[in-house]
Design a protein around this nucleic acid. Structure first.
Lengths: 135, 135
DNA sequence: CCGTATCCAAGTCGATACTG
DNA sequence: CAGTATCGACTTGGATACGG
């Protein structure tokens, strides 16, 4: 029977998911949180597989959400520095919770499927139907 | 200067994001958490805009992650019931945190951009560059 | 009733070339 | 140095139509 949990999530969670969802957002935040202010080129070096286009767009989205701030220095050569905002620090507990849960969840999946579980949920999971002749 | 936060997120968060990321996953969980066991058709009625295909696929992914369980009753007419697993309850604090953060974040965005902020971050945010003549 | 198959539109991400 | 523009591959979500 139900446990009447009443989570009442009006799906405000979407707003946060949007911040964290991009493929590179979390790595970028990791860099900025642990290294402080970084230049565009430093970020590129720290995250070798990211393209300039991706780095730019993800940074712009984070900037829009007031998570990172962008300082443009008008000199030659051009120099743009990024850092996390004060506001971004409120994200930390959530990020930690997410990472803790993620780590445990991977273990949980291993217990269920063995070491060779697929990270991405398969289209047709191989779990057998549990049948019951209820009604 | 840096505050040496050392979040060390090896991006295990991805595993959780995958659970929560689908367009309908959170609404489905909301339903199952507050109503307990529900039939496929009940879920469809509770979430009018979802298609059968989407409902099926999202439920299968949640099932793969051991978040919902699927009970098939082999009688006529067919009857399939879904409910959240024991394991799923561990998600609740995270979900609550996500929702609380989301709610506050929407307020934060309103303070910055006014009531008419765009939910989705625009490609080119209209925030002016903050220039500094450093170097 | 509870799905699957097929097709299609939209969005995401990467590679590459060009610019202030 | 720090981007923007353009294109294409791949993925996601939606609209049907059909099957057990």
């Amino acid at each position: 029977m139900t446990e009447e949990i009443e989570l009442s999530m009006d799906c405000k969670a979407e707003a946060v998911l949007e911040i964290l969802a991009g493929k590179w957002k979390r790595v970028i935040l990791e860099q900025l949180f642990s290294n402080g202010t970084m230049r565009f080129s430093e970020l590129r070096r720290a995250i070798p597989d990211i393209t300039k286009k991706m780095l730019t767009s993800q940074l712009r989205e984070l900037e829009y959400h007031d998570i990172v701030s962008r300082q443009v220095h008008l000199d030659v050569p051009p120099k743009v520095e990024y850092s996390v905002t004060e506001y971004a620090h409120r994200l930390i507990p959530l990020l930690e919770g997410l990472n803790r849960w993620g780590t445990e969840h991977i273990e949980h999946l291993k217990e269920i499927y063995g070491e060779e579980y697929a990270a991405k949920s398969p289209a047709r999971p191989r779990r057998p139907d549990r049948a019951a002749t209820g009604e």
